[in-house]
Design a protein around this nucleic acid. Structure first.
Lengths: 352, 352
DNA sequence: GTGAAAGCGCTAACAA
DNA sequence: TTGTTAGCGCTTTCAC
């Protein structure tokens, strides 16, 4: 029930109620000092009856710590920041430390504003969760509390950052395709001027080269949309009728590719395998067939960031970028084609 | 750059630097009292040089206010809570008031834990953002700060809640379908035991009845998945070949229905119109054709909740459920069928 | 074992 | 116009 506001219960109230001094009450509640067991119990009972909740602000005035961290995210939509934050929360001791979530909406002014807000609240540290995978400018200079960058690393190598090892993830995806019998691999991805697209493309080229392969048509840059995926599927089929796998720069693109292939009468995964990136379940699991995809392990990134922040708060800083490996989540879209079927379908494809 | 932690600058440092007393420094910085302009400037300069940021905890000790509110969400995924929170933030004065975001992960224990955390931080108020649209148990009894429930209203009518007027939204959707020439409307939705599904279904029945219509096959309950939408599309077509509109309980279901219809060779919107619920853009805009859908106006709900909370903090409580109207977002999936084409397609459908 | 008192950073009332 | 002081809620010596 929405109750009338009243002066909060403080430790003096508790002490009075228990018939002791505030000092004693404090000791009793925090289990410090030498107290008679009976007293301790009496104080605790009084606190219970009055629903006493200690004032964290007053405590922090003393300890110099607030047991609060700030999380600044540039990702309004929350798809990246929520998992990161959740992981961070886990690391930060199951809520022993609370988190201020600030959504900067990718606006520098807002970000600085929030930085001020956080500093005035004397947070013990700050996690900056980005949306892009390319490095970002540092939050500021001479920030008096530790800062850890999550997902989007800081451009300053002296900062602590946690990032996804996409190179390794992409390599695993390509290896997986090759090991399940695919050799004619195309790569369909986002815009050429997005660092993450370019970076994944470079990794894909390198991974293919390790197997003595070249990507069909090098890289198909476009957009992050499902529509681009559909369009690209048709284009790739036309230019390379013998394609047997399409590695996509995102799950959304992959969903579009799956749709495009299906409409072109192409069977996935029998004729062509698909692999995406993100493991965004709402997309990956709803696609037909469900997508094999690279999970960026966002929660793990958040957890690692939380751990690094805790260590830094504790005085043990660890500058540089800490890479978190990706995991390949295998679903139906990349099931190996059986050899016999493979030959059969290949012929079909060739004749298209 | 990650800088070494050091004792934060306090107002005493500023005062010393400016050669005045702390009281004077306080007045200068807060623009209170009578001061010589020159002094004010000197103090401000000192504060600037030292990068002084006032300690909000110490301030709150005095004012009894923290200018901080808590937002407890049960929605781990963030799809509902993020827009709500963003709206709330707007209302809370563009960051003059900061928000603690606590993700209870739909767990009562966690929720109570966070409640304690928030109360110990002496938040000025709490917003509880739910995921379901049905009423939820109150956060607790005798909570010493105002609480406003957003999206999922409280079961206690004495509480302040902000909810989506889904009945109105559904009515608008059905009216839209009827006004664009549809008369044989089916309703495909989530599980029968979900309050929001049952509630939307009831509204759909009532709205249809206002036009003297009955829903085809009453209501098709199932799941919230795209797969159910696909399956349902086929079922509805089979049972009612003359269906000319399908109103879906969510955008995800609607996406499945669209897919199912397309695969059955049915053209949308020429033969059959589709309307969804959520205006979840990633789904609604990616569907072919893009979905007409009911927007629950989550941001507006958050904004309203923020306003109510501010008023309540100010002593002006407003118990009861405050309904926020939904908006119908019209896209291609419900474009009116041209009369001639309508006749043509009808015949096709009948012959299937 | 318990109480009294100082002090954390800040503001506001009062003194000078 | 500026300085001094009490006190917000709490913890922590240090006396008793």
């Amino acid at each position: 029930m929405a109750t009338m506001r009243r002066r909060p219960v403080n430790i003096t109230d508790v002490a009075t109620r228990a018939g002791v001094s505030v000092g004693t009450a404090s000791k009793a509640l925090n289990g410090r000092g030498q107290l008679r067991e009976e007293t301790r119990i009496r104080v605790r009972a009084a606190a219970e009856e009055l629903s006493f909740v200690p004032n964290a602000a007053a405590q922090s005035l003393h300890t110099g710590r607030t047991f609060t961290v700030g999380v600044i995210t540039t990702d309004s939509y929350g798809r990246f920041s929520i998992p990161v934050m959740r992981g961070a929360e886990d690391a930060l001791g199951m809520g022993q430390i609370a988190a201020f979530l600030c959504d900067s909406r990718d606006d520098v002014i807002r970000e600085q504003h929030y930085l001020g807000t956080l500093l005035s609240r004397r947070v013990d540290g700050i996690i900056v969760a980005g949306r892009r995978t390319d490095a970002r400018p540092p939050l500021g200079h001479d920030i008096p509390v530790p800062v850890v960058y999550a997902f989007a690393p800081s451009q300053d190598p002296a900062d602590s950052s946690v990032a996804s090892d996409e190179g390794q993830g992409v390599r695993e995806a390509i290896n997986h395709l090759v090991m399940t019998g695919r050799r004619r691999i195309a790569h369909v991805t986002g815009p050429r001027d997005h660092a993450s697209a370019e970076h994944r493309a470079e990794s894909a080229r390198a991974a293919a080269a390790e197997h003595g392969l070249e990507l069909l048509g090098d890289v198909w840059f476009g957009g992050w949309s499902q529509a681009w995926g559909r369009f690209a599927a048709a284009s790739v089929l036309k230019a390379h009728p013998d394609v047997d796998a399409i590695f996509c720069g995102s799950d959304v693109i992959a969903a579009g590719v799956a749709e495009g292939l299906r409409e072109a009468g192409c069977r996935v995964p029998e004729e062509i395998a698909i692999v995406g990136v993100d493991n965004w379940k709402i997309v990956a699991e709803a696609t037909r067939p469900p997508l094999t995809t690279i999970d960026l392990n966002l929660e793990e990134i958040g957890r690692k960031a939380g751990e690094l922040l805790l260590a830094a708060i504790d005085g043990r800083t660890a500058p540089g970028i800490h890479w978190v490996p990706c995991s390949l989540v295998v679903r139906e879209s990349s099931a190996p084609a059986s050899p016999s079927r493979q030959t059969f379908t290949r012929r079909i494809s060739m004749g298209r």
